[in-house]
Simulated scan of single mutants.
Amino acid sequence: MTIENSADASSLSPRATQAVRRSLTPRQEAASRDVDRLIRAGRELLTQGAPARVADIVTAAGLSNDAFYRYFRSKSDFVDAVVEEGSQRLLNYLRRKMDAAGSPEGALRAGVAAVLSQAVDPSIGAATRNVVAAGGGRPHAPKVREDLEFALAEVLAGPIRELGSTDPERDSRATSILLLASMEHLLWRDTTSFDADAEVEHILGYVRRALSV
């Protein structure tokens, strides 16, 4: 019997594959810790509007430039990762608020209010503007925004379906786009005298009328 040499990893036996995975696990865990430290440090600096050069980020994280560029192609790539992490935290907050509501309409209202709060809440709005400014004033990567639209639509689909939508997938996607666009519009307005509750009710009424057509 001959043993053939092969570069194809799929030819490894189950035990050999497990051995490879065991060797990678410590490195993966270390990489996860490093990236978490960078994201946390970067988020703190960016949301405060503090200087956020790569040197500042790695110093705050207690890591090196080499570590930063091992995980991120550029500062823009890093800012997109911070925005994406923020999107996940927004979605978790949204789910908690909607789950606590006692009805489909209450859940939808809670979802609308939670998204708009990212702009009309003074401290949250300021933090979001600082992150955008750190990215050179550009919107975050289209893929990051698209992922958030889809994820938000999935969260909204339940109450929208229960409120009588005949096409909840498309209706929740349209509502998601409307909410994010409204939030971004308000983000750059003076909202000190803004009636957030009235805006929530206006958007909620708009969506309810659209669902009844």
Rank of each mutant, 00 (worst) to 15 (best):
A101L: 07
G137F: 09
R43H: 07
G62N: 13
I57F: 03
Y69H: 06
L94N: 00
Y71L: 13
L148F: 14
S64N: 02
S32H: 10
L45D: 05
F68T: 06
R73D: 11
L45T: 11
G136E: 02
R138M: 15
V83L: 01
V112W: 05
R73C: 09
A127D: 02
E84F: 09
E146W: 05
V115M: 01
L45I: 13
D147K: 01
R43W: 02
A119N: 05
A100S: 15
F72V: 05
R43I: 06
N92L: 03
I57R: 01
E146F: 10
D77V: 10
S76N: 07
M98I: 04
E105P: 06
D99T: 07
T59S: 15
G86L: 02
A55L: 13
S103F: 08
A55S: 14
L108S: 10
D66I: 15
P51E: 10
D80F: 01
V120L: 11
L45P: 05
S64R: 05
L45V: 12
E146K: 05
D121Y: 14
A50W: 04
A107E: 11
F78G: 00
G125Y: 08
R37H: 11
G102D: 11
A55M: 08
A126L: 12
R138H: 14
G111F: 14
F150C: 03
A101N: 09
A119P: 05
L38M: 11
A101S: 14
E149I: 11
A81P: 01
R33H: 15
A100T: 11
G106A: 05
A113G: 06
E85K: 01
R96C: 01
S117Q: 10
L63S: 14
A50N: 08
D121F: 12
